[in-house]
Amino acid sequence: MTDLTPVFDDLRDESEELDRLVGELSEDTWALATPAAGWSVAHQIAHLTWTDRSALLAVTDLEAFAGEVEKALAAPDRFVDEGAEAGAGLPPARLLAEWRAGRDALHKALCAAPTGVRFPWYGPPMSAASMATARLMETWAHGQDIADTLHVMRPPTDRLRHVARIGVRARDFAFGVRGLAPPEEEFRVELTSPPSGPSSGELWTYGPEDAAQRVTGPALDFCLLVTRRAHRTDLAVRAHGPDADRWLDIAQAFAGPPGTGREPKGATTA
Score class of each variant (00 low, 15 high):
Asp158Met: 02
Ile166Val: 15
Phe222Cys: 12
Ala42Met: 07
Pro218Leu: 04
Ala74Trp: 05
Trp39Gly: 10
Gly89Glu: 08
Gly217Trp: 05
Ser26His: 01
Ala93Pro: 06
Arg228Lys: 14
Gly38His: 03
Asp245His: 12
Phe254His: 13
Leu150Ala: 11
Leu18Asn: 01
Ser15Asn: 13
Ser40Glu: 00
Leu96Asn: 09
Ala66Pro: 05
Pro35Glu: 09
Val163Gly: 13
Ala113Gln: 06
Glu68Phe: 04
Trp39Leu: 10
Leu21Asp: 07
Ser26Ala: 10
Ala58Ile: 11
Ser40Tyr: 01
Asp19Gly: 09
Gly102Leu: 07
Gly67Arg: 03
Ala109Asn: 05
Arg228Phe: 02
Asp148Phe: 04
Glu16Gly: 03
Trp99Phe: 15
Pro92Cys: 06
Glu186Trp: 08
Ala267Asp: 00
Arg165Ala: 14
Arg232His: 15
Ala101Thr: 13
Ala75Gly: 07
Ala174Ile: 00
Phe79Gln: 07
Met126Pro: 00
Ser54Tyr: 11
Val152Thr: 08
Thr205Tyr: 11
Phe79Met: 02
Ala129Asn: 05
Leu21Asn: 05
Phe65Pro: 03
Arg232Gly: 13
Leu224Trp: 12
Glu202Ala: 15
Thr260Ala: 14
Phe65Val: 09
Leu110Asp: 10
Glu27Ser: 15
Ala101Ser: 13
Asp221Trp: 02
Ala244Gln: 12
Arg229Ala: 09
Gly102Arg: 00
Thr157Met: 06
Ala97Pro: 01
Asp13Phe: 11
Val237Arg: 07
Glu85Pro: 04
Gln213Gly: 06
Gly89Trp: 00
Gly201Ser: 09
Leu220Gly: 08
Ser193Glu: 00
